[in-house]
Design a protein around this nucleic acid. Structure first.
Length: 553
RNA sequence: GCGCCCGUAGCUCAGUUGGAUAGAGCGUUGGCCUCCGAAGCCAAAGGCCGCAGGUUCGAUUCCUGCCGGGCGCACCA
């Protein structure tokens, strides 16, 4: 049972004894200042309105009736009506054994047990290589998946390939032009084509593999031929980079194969019509999107154009309704800010089709402004100028890249200075955290060299741990499960990255002033247990972020 | 013009779904390696939390207006 749940139980018991009503919930926070205890709650002030009693009075009664608990040394009433809880040092020390016994499972919880979540992210167009903002989305999405899974959720991660429509045709025509150039013909790139060098390389590969020009074939067939080839190769390349980055997807879905070929948009249009959600006007079919006030869309949306073709929106709606929501309780999409106009219409459509509002969520991952030597690197896919994800990984490395992306909120724009990240990589916060882990591993290596036996750690007597710095470290470790739970609930993996820095900042000074390996065997074993617990939590935390925990650096 | 997001230390960013004396990294200044890893530690300087009102015991957090920045507003995807 989580510590905060135990404390809440204590509060409920005390309230019952005092004859007071219970608050809807009892929120615990870790006060900034040590004098305010290890945990604090403001529920007396919340309860004051309901119980019609002064906050201080409620707090006093609860403090008076708070049941004895091994975890709790004392409770104090402070300020306008805070209830501050101080933990028992001996209990804290003994709690280390639970962390050590749990090992890799420490931090896991059941708050999302049984929930089925569909999480889509990156989903870059197959018209070019992955760029830096894709790396950010990949870091955030993958960390979210890991977070939710630790809380018992069943998460299916998904990369949706937009291999249909106008962009597909533009890619096909661009690629065909490059192939013709490769064969020595003079062919111009189409209007709105993709000018990047990567299609030149791809054309070379195509010819090398014995690819043909398809002269004489009808245009439709040529587009299909060159388009499919290019898409397959682009997706393959994207997948390879993502794998190097440590991100694997459970589902690779295809707009063409999974939605268009199955004519799902036609099916959903019928569903709209039969439910009275759409109307005909100017030869097109419109969704009454603006009538769904709760979704916040300000105008109606076209589902089927006057030429009979479904819009991209209709395809996307069909895809969500029939496929994403099949066997899923909750759909979460990570999108770039350029797609945010799509959010309100989609939300309106999902609600109109009967999905609960909270079952469909969109997280906007903001842009990354790349700086090189303090100057913004201009990026334009149209002109074929951009910094590739591949280059980012070469320059700053996987761990530093992921950690940097995860120290910012996903909805906050981010400036990433390549030159600084490269030149000063040793001063990157990720190394600060990893270094704490490597140091601990080094202590155990050192012990082994000196022939010191490491005891079975969960059984170690931790009572010698009485120093304030040691207790502070232990109390921090005890917060980890609650932190992970909160980060998962709020869909905010950056909390983990920040907390890990805090843990490392607590460990390094302690290490400086307290020796582990020493003559006092009891104290040594207790400190070994503490180190092992810190080590475990750092490793578990970095694992959530997809960052490695090296044995040595 | 309308909508969404964002204005916190010189720079990049946190601030735990309204809490107590606002934090970190980088950068700047000054100290610390005969002692388990100096990718570390200790210390200093640096803030009308964009501005002005409102809500209440209490606001960086919620509401309104203004200023400043980003993005989006197609029978494109």
């Amino acid at each position: 049972m989580r510590l905060t749940d135990r404390l809440t139980d204590g509060v409920r018991t005390a309230l019952a004894k005092a004859g007071l009503p219970e608050p809807a919930e009892c929120a615990w926070e870790v006060p900034r200042q040590a004098e305010h205890g290890d945990y604090a709650t403001n529920f007396p002030m919340v309860l004051a309105r309901i119980a019609k009693r002064a906050p201080r009075q409620i707090a006093d009664l609860v403090a008076k009736h708070f049941p004895p608990m091994p975890e709790v040394e004392r409770v104090e009433v402070a300020g306008p009506g805070f209830l501050n809880v101080f933990l028992t040092p001996a209990w804290c020390a003994s709690a280390l054994s639970e962390i050590l016994a749990a090992g890799a499972a420490y931090g896991r919880g059941e708050s999302q047990a049984g929930r089925r979540i569909r999480l889509e992210f990156v989903s870059a167009n197959p018209t070019g290589p992955l760029v830096i903002v894709n790396a950010r989305a990949a870091a955030v999405g993958d960390a979210l998946a890991r977070l939710l899974r630790t809380q018992g959720a069943h998460v299916a991660t998904e990369f949706y390939v937009n291999d249909a429509g106008n962009q597909f045709e533009a890619l096909a025509r661009s690629f065909e032009a490059r192939v013709r150039q490769e064969f020595g013909e003079s062919a111009a790139l189409p209007e709105n084509g993709y000018p990047g060098e990567y299609l030149v390389d791809l054309a070379k590969a195509y010819r090398h593999e014995g690819g043909r020009l398809m002269n004489g074939a009808p245009e439709r067939e040529r587009i299909e031929h060159f388009g499919r080839y290019a898409v397959a190769r682009m997706v393959e390349a994207q997948r390879r980079i993502l794998r190097e980055y440590g991100v694997e997807f459970d589902v690779w879905s295809s707009e063409q194969r999974d939605v268009r070929d199955k004519r799902l948009s036609e099916k959903v249009l019928e569903e709209f019509a039969s439910r009275g959600l759409s109307y005909e006007q100017d030869g097109a079919l419109w969704f009454r999107s603006s009538e769904r006030d709760e979704a916040g869309d300000d105008k109606d949306r076209v589902l089927r154009r006057s030429n009979g073709e479904p819009t991209y929106f209709a395809v996307d709606v069909a895809y969500h309704h029939y496929l994403k929501f099949a066997n899923t309780d909750r759909v979460i999409n990570l999108l770039g800010p350029d797609h945010h106009g799509l959010v309100a219409p989609m939300r309106a459509a999902m609600q109109a089709l009967g999905h609960p509002p909270e079952a469909f969520e969109v997280l906007l991952v903001q842009l990354v402004t790349l700086l090189r030597d303090g100057q913004p690197v201009r990026m334009s896919k149209r002109r074929g100028e951009f910094v590739l994800m591949e280059e980012l990984l070469e320059e700053v490395g996987r761990d530093a890249a992921r950690f940097t992306f995860l120290t910012r909120r996903h909805d906050s724009p981010l400036e990433f200075d390549l030159a600084v990240a490269t030149r000063q990589s040793n001063e990157n916060p990720v190394y600060y955290v990893q270094y704490a882990h490597a140091r601990i591993r080094s202590i155990f290596r050192q012990a082994a060299e000196q022939g010191i036996a490491v005891p079975n750690l969960p059984d170690v007597d931790t009572s010698p741990l009485v120093e304030p710095a040691e207790l502070a470290l232990i109390k921090l470790l005890l917060q980890f499960p609650e932190l992970v739970n909160g980060a998962a609930r709020a869909l905010e993996p950056h909390r983990v990255a920040y907390w890990l820095q805090q843990l490392a900042a607590e460990f390094h000074p302690w290490y400086k002033t307290h020796r582990v390996i020493q003559d006092d065997a009891r104290l040594m074993r207790a400190r070994m247990a503490l180190c092992a617990a810190v080590d475990t939590v750092i490793r578990n935390g970095l694992e959530l972020l997809g960052v490695s925990a090296p044995e040595s650096m």
